[in-house]
Amino acid sequence: MLRILLFEIRKLLEQPIILLFFIACLMLNTIYIATAGLDQSYLNYVQDTKTKTGSFITSEFQEKLSNMSSSNQHNRLLTETDERENIFNQYSTEALGQEMIDYFQIQGSMAEKMKIKYEKLTPIVHELAEEQAALEVGAAGETMSFFTFLKNRLFHAILGESLIFALLLGLYGSTSERLTKTDVLIITSKTGRKTQVTKYVASLIIALLFYVTTVTLSFAIFNQMHTIGTLWSTSISTQFHLNVYVPQSLEIPFIPWKSMTLLNYILLSIALGGILVFICHGFNFLIGLWANLLFRGFVLFVVFYVSLLGLEQIINHLNWWDMRSLLMWHPISLWNLQAYWFTEMGPFSTIPWHESIAMAVNIILLVIAGILTARYYSTKEVK
Rank of each mutant, 00 (worst) to 15 (best):
Q73T: 04
Y103R: 10
K113V: 06
D48Q: 15
F56E: 15
S71T: 13
E85I: 08
Q47S: 15
M100Y: 06
E112L: 11
N67H: 04
Q107L: 01
Q90K: 07
S59T: 14
Q105H: 14
Y45G: 14
S59R: 09
F88A: 09
L65P: 01
Q73I: 00
L65E: 10
F56I: 13
D102G: 03
E83Y: 09
S69E: 08
T81E: 01
Q62V: 00
S92C: 01
S70T: 12
K113F: 12
L121I: 03
Y118P: 02
K115P: 02
Y45S: 14
Y118D: 00
E112Y: 07
I57A: 03
L96P: 01
S41K: 05
E85Q: 15
E60T: 14
Q107H: 11
E60R: 02
Q107A: 07
E94W: 03
T35D: 13
I101D: 02
P123I: 01
S59P: 11
S66Q: 06
Y32R: 06
N44Y: 13
Y118K: 04
M68D: 08
S55K: 06
T35G: 02
S71H: 07
I31R: 14
M114S: 05
R76Q: 15
G97A: 04
K117H: 02
H74E: 07
L43W: 11
D82S: 06
